[in-house]
Design a protein around this nucleic acid. Structure first.
Lengths: 206, 206
DNA sequence: CCTACCGATCGGTAGG
DNA sequence: CCTACCGATCGGTAGG
């Protein structure tokens, strides 16, 4: 009665009425699993099961597994790019801009945890060509931090930025690590976390 | 002439004389590949090729792929544990201890980049039981930071540590992210990086 | 350390 | 969206 090979879990039938899945559903579920198990740790059959269908059924919604990774990553990346653009366009003092970058970054990660984690952690598994797109996007984003820090150092708002490239890397390290430890049920709200990061970045511990 | 299946790359014969590989060689090569491609992105055949032998030949040195991951991770973890122990045992002011933790952490990562990266990035792919061991080890390590920060706050060495748990997480975020961007050929030496981190942590940007 | 495999699983396709 | 597959690759073993 069972197929010769491929003991794939069948979708439930009966009781639960499930509507047809959209491409949107597939991309969102992919973000969830890529963030949780990693790209190489997620099979198309895993992804199908998450949605209540077979792995092979996904191919009517998407082109392939790596296209799916690319799409999740683009969604994550676009939000960070939009933040940097908005902050630079709005202007203000260097300290104000840095504050908006940090608050916005924390907001994006905490609200779109799966897409952010996939963008930040799984990008290296992209094929060479689209990976170049991602590297460009990340470099541009880091440039916003570097520019703000450089401006602030020149205007004497910041007295302790000897190496804006290093400082921006360190600030982004704190921010990006959020995808590793932030959980909505955790002790601290996104606002409290952003305040804590800003306190450390602005004043240090002593 | 070729086998029916499994077009596996054969080790070179002739010219190059290669000595038998040791378990040590296997573990080191595993660290290299797990760090570079991720645990699930590395096959036993990849690992064999890295050493000039077949994937199946590895099993005379090791018990299985997940045992190999565990061994690489233990090597990384042991170094961080030893650092924390030594710093706590040596004592000194909170600022001095924090400085030694940061300098030591940067030294471990920059010197043992593969083991550190595998410890910090691939631990979640460990089977449940050994993963508990790793979580314990990481918690103990983070406790050293938390204790130093709490002590420093109480003794008024640190005036800006409202939440030692958050601050220690943020400091460790900066340190651990090194495995992502540090390259021996890079612009900054380990000492310069440690100084930069300490400058930001102690004084902030302004 | 290789030869010669094993069963399971992988990403993906043809056809309905 | 499923049925029924495909060839490739996976981790791993028996025997030498």
């Amino acid at each position: 009665m069972r197929p010769q090979r491929g003991e794939e879990v069948r979708p439930q039938r009966g009781e639960e009425v499930t509507s047809p899945k959209t491409r949107e559903d597939v991309v969102r579920a992919a973000g969830r699993l890529f963030a949780e198990r990693g790209y190489h740790g997620t099979s198309m059959r895993d992804l199908g099961q998450e949605l209540g269908l077979l792995g092979s059924s996904l191919y009517s919604h998407i082109e392939g597994k790596d296209q799916l990774l690319l799409e999740v990553i683009r969604r994550g990346g676009a939000m960070f790019a939009a933040l940097a653009e908005e902050v630079v366009a709005t202007g203000g003092t260097a300290a104000e801009q840095l504050r908006r970058l940090v608050v916005g970054h924390v907001a994006i990660i905490t609200e779109f945890l799966d897409e952010s984690a996939t963008f930040l952690e799984e990008g290296r598994f992209l094929p060479a060509e689209p990976r170049a797109e991602l590297v460009e996007l990340r470099d541009a984003y880091e440039d916003a931090y570097r520019a703000v820090l450089t401006t602030g150092a020149r205007s004497h708002e910041f007295h302790n930025v000897d190496d804006p490239a290093l400082t921006s890397t360190l600030i982004l390290s704190m921010l990006n690590a959020l995808v590793r430890w932030y959980r909505p049920s955790g002790r601290l709200s996104p606002e409290e976390i952003a305040d804590g990061i800003l306190a450390l970045v602005m004043e240090g511990v002593s």
